[in-house]
Amino acid sequence: MKQALAVLTVLFAIVAIWYAAVAPMNIRVALDQAERAGELVTPETARDRRETSTWVLMAKNPSHISTGYALDRPRLPAPDQVAQELWKTTGEMVVKGRAFSKRSLIYHAGITLQSTLWGFLLGTTLGILAAVAIVYSRVADMSLMPWAIISQTIPIVALAPMIIVVSSQVGIEGRGVPKAIISAYLCYFPVLVGMVKGLRSPSLPQLDLLKTYNASGTQGFFKLRLPSSLPYLFTSLKVGIAAALVGTIVGELPTGAVSGLGARILIGDQFGTPLAIWAALFAAAILAGLLVTLLDLLQRIALRRMGMNT
């Protein structure tokens, strides 16, 4: 309850700052529009206004400030505009029975979610396997780990087009696979690091105990190392799924994709419809929130069943 209050307070503050910022951000656009409509604004020409500071413009044209909150193509849309656009492209489509039409963000979120989940699966599997190799083999520890770290220093935006070009070169049809690969590229790393830490978390006496039973390596893995690593794994998975979503959206951006949230952001940018961009952004954020919450829930259930009171 206390936490909810804290979160709501922060949310309220953000929305308030957002609303306050809309006025100065949009005053110029509002005045341009008013001028074209034949209204009187000061200064009268666009050139003169460019020389004038935002604050002076607001002071001289107080009656036009409110126009900035209802523009079609604002620099910064007001929160209620974004909410409206979001509703128009999701809830309203559902009401109309067209939830999966190409104009619906639910459709695009679905496309993005699909690639995200494939990427997440691929990245998590790779991360876990690499972690096991690193923990059990000194050679893997010394050779794989540095490369894993270097892989994360390459900007994914630079790498994404190459992955797409290469995958079409080797004859992979469609965007699903390269998007999943880009997504996996971002998400395997937190899983790898968390799993290495988790698999190494058993203490020396715990390992000695197994030795006194003459337990085999496999038994040690399944009875001690793997269960010990689970709390670490879940924490990594939560970071990993958010990274996978970012990866998928990045994979949709530079590739001329026509569907997916990343494509919506790109198209919104190209056609100058900021409301579409913002709605897609929020759809992505909501999707990420849902995925992380889902994993958090899974973690609670799993750890409770394992008797760990978290």
Binding site: P205, Q206, D208, L209, T212, L224, P227, M306, G307, M308
Partner: peptide, 14 residues
């Protein structure tokens, strides 16, 4: 032999 360590070292998930 059975070995008893200074810390009980029970597995918390069992």
């Amino acid at each position: 032999y059975g070995y008893v360590f200074q810390a009980a070292g029970l597995y918390p998930w069992r």
